[in-house]
Design a protein around this nucleic acid. Structure first.
Lengths: 318, 318
DNA sequence: TTGTAAGCGTTATCAT
DNA sequence: ATGATAACGCTTACAA
């Protein structure tokens, strides 16, 4: 017991005793067994972070932000790639199995229909836009406002035929919410909303962005601006436009969403929505920590929407 | 005990008993306690992966490759950001503390001088180029050969004044090894090696690449090719060149190293060394698994060097 | 096929 | 200030 007290820096250990213990520990090359400690304490000091994919500028930025936020709180993060709805449920159960003290889940597979599966007796925070009003704390992007602002920016720069590039649109999700913001901005400016300009791709990466941009150009679609719901998509679009000889921003202006590190250096550099990643990460970790600390689960679920600003770069005229 | 047998799919449980147990588990909403299991088994089924930074195209690619390799083996990966030598030592001790069954360490802070600190009694695999001949298994990039090939490619495309852009050069590390390959290629082609062309930056990211490219251009340095030791650096260079009005590949050709996802879509698309990330990841996990499985530590340390190929794209003339 | 007993290495509680 | 004792929830070894 005294050894335990020394290890955990408890007071009430005589200095000479402490030294004796430390000396013995050094001599024996003693290491605490974290598994045993976790069992005895009922805590692991680790939270789980489940993201759909790691090799993505956005999710790696997000992971870095979360890690930054946890470091300041003396927590460890274990990152899991949960690439499917199935994987996400796995992550949930691992957390329930006391491997983690709590879980930050970036849902991509789970949807509004799975809301009830989140009703678990251990701390979970949802980060993202697929589940609203669930029985968990929730940190979301400022989808609507930011999309309006991005679209408005294109309009202000003179675009009249603005394409909207997104992923599969579901009832409630990033694509759907940002589409609403886009439509609102058009409506506010008195511009018609042409369904042909609404383009959906399967995956929100550069490849799909590039392919679709080429298809749009080749099909003769008339457009002078593109609002892409992720920067990856937007950089892909810039690439696709370049392939077809279309000049950005002169002929077509492009704006993205996320402000990933690469956007600043792309050629042309990418105008984009800059969400307050840091703030959202801090808040997610705060909410989770609060849940972990409180003994009794309380159904006062919080919904936090992050801040954003617009970053104007070359792709919309600088 | 019978419950344990059911949970672990052991044979020798009567079907009716199994069902009774499963039913009871469902009724009680029972969950195994992973912490307790870890303690009893002395294994966690989790390996640690320590990388210097997460928000980097290269390391996120690597992390994804490692995760892919472990999934097939029924292992879980816990990713840690170890951004300093200190952090790397932490990761080592966590593993020693039985939180992980083993550790894959991408050393960036630890160096050849720390070799002895790797002499630990639990499985570790080093992934990277900073420690050779240490008391651990080691998976490395084909630095020398690949750098020679990349430099040779620039020479074949007509470059005569090839700059080399790297990070701080130490005794043994990525920068140093690739520098050697670069010099060898120049020598083989009978080209002089001008020290002014060897450019070092602090961090291997796009920002430093862009800044340095602008400085090189502004200072009037004469160069017609750049071999960058990472793709991020190379994309930064392309950006920097664009800023100063230098055309790539017409006036200056650029080649990178890593073949990160972004390279294919950058404008101009980036020629680069494509290491066999998947193969290296598989091998690292294999080596680690072997160590975990064997009871007695054996000092037959393996050194595995991955494969590579060259991917020629627009930045060197397509 | 099922169940008993011991032990994994810590920490919490409570005496001393 | 120190230490004895009993958990923590599981698995292994072995007995029934």
């Amino acid at each position: 017991m005294t050894v335990s007290n020394v290890i955990n820096d408890h007071p009430n250990v005589r200095e000479t005793t402490r030294e004796k213990v430390l000396k013995a520990m050094a001599r024996l090359d003693y290491r605490v067994n974290v598994a045993a400690r976790n069992l005895a304490k009922g805590r692991t000091g680790t939270i789980g972070l489940a993201v759909p994919e790691l090799n993505s500028p956005y999710y790696s930025l997000l992971a870095a932000a979360i890690i930054g936020a946890t470091e300041r709180r003396g927590l460890r993060v274990s990152i899991e790639q949960a690439a499917s709805r199935e994987n996400e449920l796995d992550a949930l159960s691992l957390s329930r199995n006391r491997l983690y003290d709590g879980l930050i889940l970036c849902a991509a597979g789970l949807g509004q229909a799975d809301t009830e599966r989140l009703r678990v007796d251990h701390p979970v925070v949802i980060l993202g836009d697929r589940i609203f009003g669930g029985p968990v704390d929730h940190v979301a992007m400022p989808n609507l406002e930011a999309s309006r602002a991005a679209t408005r920016h294109l309009i202000e720069r003179g675009c009249r035929r603005i394409a909207f590039l997104c992923g599969p649109v579901e009832e409630v999700d990033t694509s759907g919410l940002r589409l609403t913001g886009y439509r609102q901005a058009l409506a506010e400016a008195g511009l018609p909303s042409d369904p042909a300009l609404i383009q959906q791709v399967d995956r929100l990466g550069m490849r799909d962005g590039a392919c679709r941009a080429r298809e749009m150009a080749d099909s003769g679609l008339d457009f002078d601006g593109v609002f892409c719901i992720t920067d990856s998509l937007a950089m892909g679009v810039l690439r696709g436009l370049a392939d077809t000889g279309i000049q950005a921003p002169d002929q077509v202006k492009v704006i993205g969403f996320d402000n990933v590190s690469e956007s600043e250096f792309f050629i042309p550099s990418l105008s984009t929505v800059d969400p307050d990643h840091q703030g959202m990460a801090e808040r997610a970790v705060d909410l989770l920590t609060r849940r972990i600390e409180q003994k009794k689960p309380a159904p006062d679920y919080e919904e936090f929407v992050g801040d954003f600003s617009l970053v104007i770069r070359e792709s919309t005229g600088g």
